[in-house]
Simulated scan of single mutants.
Amino acid sequence: MSAAAWKATRNFVLADEEGKADYVMVKVIESRSVSNAIANDLRVRHQSPQVLLLQGGKVLWTASHWDITEKSLEKALS
């Protein structure tokens, strides 16, 4: 699961030549306190892997595991 989500996300980000968004990756194991703060501040249930789309500090869209695909990422940003 994690490998497929990572591959889809990486491919999507690398293909985004227009710079539709700013992208940040948090490595949960290495940065547990950051991950916990994100979940707490944004009031989202932590999942791993997980993608959050934010605008103005609010979560507009989230996906985890098998729902993270290049197609779902494209749809979320359109």
Rank of each mutant, 00 (worst) to 15 (best):
Q47S: 11
I68D: 00
Q47W: 03
S31D: 04
K71I: 10
G56Y: 05
L77Y: 11
Q50R: 04
E30V: 06
L54Q: 08
V59I: 04
W6E: 13
L77W: 09
V44E: 06
L54R: 04
S48K: 04
V59G: 04
D16Q: 02
E17G: 02
L52I: 13
A5T: 10
V59P: 01
W6T: 13
W66P: 01
V59L: 05
Q55H: 07
E74L: 09
A5G: 13
S31N: 14
E30N: 15
A63L: 04
G56W: 02
A15K: 09
V13T: 07
K75D: 13
A21L: 04
K27L: 13
Y23N: 11
G56Q: 04
R32D: 02
W61C: 03
L54K: 00
V34F: 06
A37K: 14
G56K: 04
I38E: 02
A39H: 08
N40Y: 07
A5V: 13
A63S: 05
K58N: 13
K7A: 13
K20R: 15
A8D: 02
A8N: 10
A4F: 07
M1E: 14
A3D: 15
I38S: 06
P49G: 05
Y23S: 12
W61F: 07
V13H: 00
A21D: 06
D22N: 12
E17K: 13
W6G: 00
A21C: 13
V59D: 02
G56T: 12
S72F: 01
I29Y: 03
G19Y: 12
